[in-house]
Design a binder for these strands. Sequence first.
RNA 1: GAAAGUAGGCGUAGGCGGUUGCGGACUCCCCAAAAGAGUCUGAGGAAAGUCCGGGCUCCCGAAAGACCGAACUUGCUGGGUAACGCCCAGUGCGGGCGACCGUGAGGAUAGUGCCACAGAAACAUACCGCCGAUGGAGGGAAACAUCACCCCUCACAGGUAAGGGUGCAAAGGUGCGGUAAGAGCGCACCAGCAAUAUCGAGAGGUAUUGGCUCGGUAAACCCCGGUUGGGAGCAAGGUCAAAGGAACCACGGUUGGUCUUUUCCCAGUUCCGCCAUCAAAACGUACCGCUCGAGGCGUCUGGUAACAGGCGUCCCAGAUAGAUAACCGCCCCCCUUUGGCCUCAAAACCAAAGGGGAACAGAACCCGGCUUACUACCGACUUUCUCCC
RNA 2: UGGGGCGUCGCCAAGUGGUAAGGCACCUGGUUUUGGUCCAGGCAUUCAGAGGUUCGAAUCCUUUCGCCCCAG
Length: 135
Amino acid sequence: MLPQENRLKHRRDFDAVYKSGTRRTHGKLSAIALGRDRGSVERKPSSETGFATSPPSAPPTRIGISISQKVSKSAVVRNRIKRQIRAALLELLPRLSDGWDITIVVRPGASQCNYCQFLQKLEQLLASLEVLNGD
RNA sequence: GAAAGUAGGCGUAGGCGGUUGCGGACUCCCCAAAAGAGUCUGAGGAAAGUCCGGGCUCCCGAAAGACCGAACUUGCUGGGUAACGCCCAGUGCGGGCGACCGUGAGGAUAGUGCCACAGAAACAUACCGCCGAUGGAGGGAAACAUCACCCCUCACAGGUAAGGGUGCAAAGGUGCGGUAAGAGCGCACCAGCAAUAUCGAGAGGUAUUGGCUCGGUAAACCCCGGUUGGGAGCAAGGUCAAAGGAACCACGGUUGGUCUUUUCCCAGUUCCGCCAUCAAAACGUACCGCUCGAGGCGUCUGGUAACAGGCGUCCCAGAUAGAUAACCGCCCCCCUUUGGCCUCAAAACCAAAGGGGAACAGAACCCGGCUUACUACCGACUUUCUCCC
RNA sequence: UGGGGCGUCGCCAAGUGGUAAGGCACCUGGUUUUGGUCCAGGCAUUCAGAGGUUCGAAUCCUUUCGCCCCAG
């Protein structure tokens, strides 16, 4: 499971990502990314006590996953895909640069993929969105 | 041995370890919070479908009662339950050789509607038929005439519903008698109805007697009985800087309608009391509701049982873009192949390699049921048939 | 999570107990030199599945499945 600060939660954040993010698609997965450092930074200054010490340019990157009933009618299958994607993202998280809102959209047919395929596709998608700190 | 039937096994299964992670509770640390550390804990029998019944919350001011109305679509009897359309026990009917299973099982004589096609006729008749006793018409007969009786003919009035044919269904069924022909018209048995007696708590069972008899359909409207304030649903509803409370009380305000009683609210009066310096935040699962409950387990008592009661013991998920996991290894189990052992041959056993580890399925306020989905296995009890002793 | 609706031929669909209309599409034949148009004929579904009520069910009752819509 992702830490709380890396989760994308609210509907208005999802809407903002869908409206003006950059979309990339690879196979059965699709990723949309939006930089957070304009406009939304001063909306969210309250809770950070460490906010004074670190410069305001790097809020943590938040990720949300969207999977529709068209992928599978079974809630068990959908939850399993979400867990596997989250596990893969956890592996990639240290290499991500800060300050992004990302939505992963699972498209129909993804119920046949396994963990390694998800990991590869996510890596390629994030690299193509240039949010990976390359090495 | 074969073929079945019933009710079960806290729905019973994978176990251990490693790496990376998540939710909750408690403890430590700390002035406090956050962060951190530690310990414990973290999906199901159906969590599903949302088909019923409740709890809980809000709105229509509230509660109780009487009469009328409406709705529900509940409907054999008795019991259980907070309640139910659920459960248990029984009755009737249907199915099965049987163990057993199914059952939406009030009323068609309260009334209305419908019963296509066919058929004469679908609930009231008469097409083909049968008869023509009675009445009518014509004729005959005894010496003659008339009337009556008698005989013959007609099928005019009329009688009949046995037989034919139609249909899911045609005025109880079969037999004997009876009659002009027939008919419960009479009798016997059967089916059905009613009354009485008796058994039963009751649904009903049994017996006797009686008059002879009435199509089906109410999962058609309806009648009777029963039940019920209506509506919305935890995305209910509430808190989130900012004060109102108590007493008295006019007119008025009610759940489908009317009425009665009690209470509440409301303008107003009196008394007591409070707030407004700035900033931030400000309708979002941020917090409450939210998990101790018609609760689980054990045992005893009552009851045929469903279930109820007593005692002891336990606390057992509370998420909110939604945790309970992702990946890997070993053990164990199952299947396949190969080899070994044994053997006439196989099975079983041992070893190696490969594959698989379940199916249905994810809490979303909580309970009680119903329905549906589904893997491998375990052992009971019962019935019928066959074989052996 | 809650609320509501639908399912009839390949497509659009009518049908509220008594033979499952119609249109498009498709097939065959005719008309035409040929194609189109036009004309005639044909074409089906255990009416989403299962069980029940009824003499008789697409229709009534129970239940399951699938699809769609609405509410933050």
